[in-house]
């Protein structure tokens, strides 16, 4: 009975007793969730437009961050380094399209998925070869990102918010809004949505698939750079991030592979869920459950709704 009490009652008692702690924990979860959502977003963009399950999105985040910091270390001014990094991400998009996607067009999904493993390893190797494998400090100050924190006195205690986290949330929101505008209102956005619905139909009305692929991979690269800056500013820029980036996968499962709002909501659910789980239930089993909790949340969810939060019910046809 005691163990049941500890699992089902005690955590909620704790939450009620110290609501400020609860809010603090949820805020941290929210911020982590925003970053998961950003990685998932890059992923959804590519999946929608090219049907590729892009395993390399996480490493693109690391690579973008590393390139930015690396360039700055070589003496390039911060904002010029951002532009140059965007250039690098564009080159990657072109290279991926030329070397990987074009020769593999019409191959089964699993082959393309495996190919993105290849891209991942290439990027890891090249990144480490050029910039070294050591963690680097993000040039947050040089990019005029705020540091320090603000405190609120509420709920009988303090809630402390890092300014960089607030900035990250705001920038993420702006970026999503811009992307939404881009997809809904521009000619390229319309072409993108057409490709997402049907490759063949899009081709038949004269949309260039190759061009579209470069554009989405570049867009995903931009998203990766923003994610890399934000994440790097909170901790370090290092390849350890790659493992954390895998958590975008449960996020995608929750949100559905093709839904942008799904990626965002899924990211927040996973972020908040795992922080709460770690803080209130983690100590029962010795902590560290953050490393797998996200996958279990997604799995449990999947058993009830295999098509994800926003996905449509799948009717199998034969």
């Amino acid at each position: 009975m005691d163990i049941l009490y500890k699992i089902f009652v005690d955590p909620f008692v704790q939450m009620g007793a110290a609501p400020d702690l609860l809010v603090q924990t949820m805020w941290e979860g929210l911020v982590a969730g925003v970053l998961y959502a950003l990685i998932a977003l890059g992923f959804v963009l590519i999946f929608k437009a090219s049907g590729v399950f892009n395993f390399a999105q996480g490493i693109m985040v690391v690579f973008a961050g590393l390139t930015l910091v690396g360039l700055h270390e070589m003496g390039v001014p911060a904002f010029l380094a951002v532009i140059l990094t965007l250039g690098v991400m564009f080159l990657i998009a072109v290279a991926v399209e030329r070397v990987v996607l074009r020769p593999l067009v019409n191959q089964p999904d699993i082959i393309l998925f495996m190919a993105t493993f290849g891209i991942t390893y290439l990027l890891i190797g090249i990144g480490e070869l050029i910039f070294g494998g050591n963690p680097k400090r993000m040039i947050a100050k040089e990019l005029y990102l705020p540091s320090g924190s603000v405190e609120f006195q509420t709920l009988g205690g303090f809630v402390q918010l890092q300014k960089i986290d607030i900035a990250a949330s705001v920038i993420a929101a702006i970026m999503i809004a811009v992307l939404a505008f881009f997809f809904q209102k521009t000619r390229i956005g319309r072409a993108l949505r057409a490709v997402a619905d049907s490759h063949k139909a899009a081709l038949s009305v004269g949309i260039s698939l190759n061009q579209i692929w470069v554009i989405v991979w570049f867009t995903a690269g931009i998203v990766a750079l923003v994610t890399g800056i934000m994440w790097g500013a909170r901790s370090d820029v290092s390849f350890a991030l790659q493992i954390i980036a895998l958590k975008a996968l449960p996020v995608l499962i929750l949100g559905g592979f093709t839904s942008v709002p799904g990626a965002i909501v899924g990211g927040l659910i996973i972020g908040i869920g795992e922080k709460l789980g770690e803080f209130y239930w983690g100590p029962l089993v010795g902590g560290g459950i953050e490393s797998w909790l996200a996958y279990f949340i997604a799995l449990g969810f999947l058993l009830f709704r295999p098509q994800g939060l926003f996905g449509e019910k799948i009717i199998e046809r034969i």
Partner: peptide, 24 residues
């Protein structure tokens, strides 16, 4: 030794892509 490790990543990555294209 570190360079070997990095080269290994690059070669494995390139091999994967190469094989998938040439002979899935």
């Amino acid at each position: 030794a570190a360079t070997v490790e990095h080269l290994q990543f690059i070669i494995v990555g390139a091999l994967i892509i190469f094989f998938l294209i040439v002979e899935p």
